[in-house]
């Protein structure tokens, strides 16, 4: 069964959505069959949540609000995990962030 799910998250880690978090996000997204998109709230461009390059094009600094959308058989689980990753600040801010 295909379902749709969406969630709004805010980037909270100091360095924003830089390469390492973008990679973690894309790697997590790729584990799911659902299509996953990410959009800066109030902006038109939508990027593929499974592409590091496209995620980097969001230039999501700390404080940026993002709308995550999943569409597919595992949409809800996918969004739960992705939202948790963002909300946990990609496990940064306690470790060295490069």
């Amino acid at each position: 069964m295909t379902t749709n799910a969406s969630a709004i998250v805010t980037i909270e880690n100091r360095l924003g959505l830089h390469a390492r978090p973008a990679m973690m996000f894309a790697e997590t997204a790729m584990r799911f069959d659902s299509d996953i998109t990410v959009q800066r709230s109030n902006q038109d461009s939508i990027v593929d949540g499974k592409s590091i390059m496209q995620l980097m094009m969001l230039a999501a600094v700390r404080g940026t609000e993002l709308t995550l959308t999943a569409n597919g058989p595992d949409a809800e689980t996918a969004l739960e995990e992705l939202a948790e990753l963002v909300n946990n600040r990609f496990n940064e801010d306690s470790v060295e962030g490069v």
């Binding site: 924003g16 830089h18 230039a59 999501a60």
Partner: peptide, 11 residues
């Protein structure tokens, strides 16, 4: 860090 993200976006 914002400048770094803007540069990555441009690239």
């Amino acid at each position: 860090p914002e400048e770094h993200l803007e540069a990555m976006e441009a690239v």
